[in-house]
């Protein structure tokens, strides 16, 4: 399977990763190679096989509804690129 510019732009948007115009061809070529690898799955007969999301047949364990976390925002925000008055800053969100 061979990807074109449109697909690369679509994938770039899904992944939120900018792809420069000059990179499109190489990205398309390498992704296409990987999709060729995926194509090997087509021939396999998977009729009646349940999808397997997880290696273990376990069920979800539950946590007691008790507050265990304390305010750590100063420590946690020490690694943040931009904060003000306890808030994380981003370019204006338009709503």
């Amino acid at each position: 399977m061979s990807l074109g510019k449109t697909e690369v732009e679509y994938i770039s948007r899904l992944a939120a990763i900018a792809v420069q115009d000059g990179e499109v061809d190489e990205v398309a070529a390498k992704l296409s190679n990987i999709l060729d690898l995926f194509a090997q799955m087509e021939a396999a007969d998977t009729q009646g096989v349940e999808p397997m999301a997880h290696p273990l047949d376990q069920v979800q364990r539950l946590r007691r509804d008790v507050i265990s976390e304390t305010d750590q925002h100063e420590k946690l925000q020490s690694v943040a690129p931009a904060t003000s008055e306890g808030l994380y800053l981003v370019p204006q969100v338009i709503e």
Partner: peptide, 26 residues
């Protein structure tokens, strides 16, 4: 509830910004 769906942070309304957002919530 007392706490969040996936962490032990309080869900009480009206706290100072990000004081009830633990590393899991973040």
């Amino acid at each position: 509830t007392n706490t969040k769906i996936f962490s032990g942070s309080s869900i009480a309304y009206g706290a100072q910004p990000n004081t009830q957002a633990c590393s899991i919530d973040l």
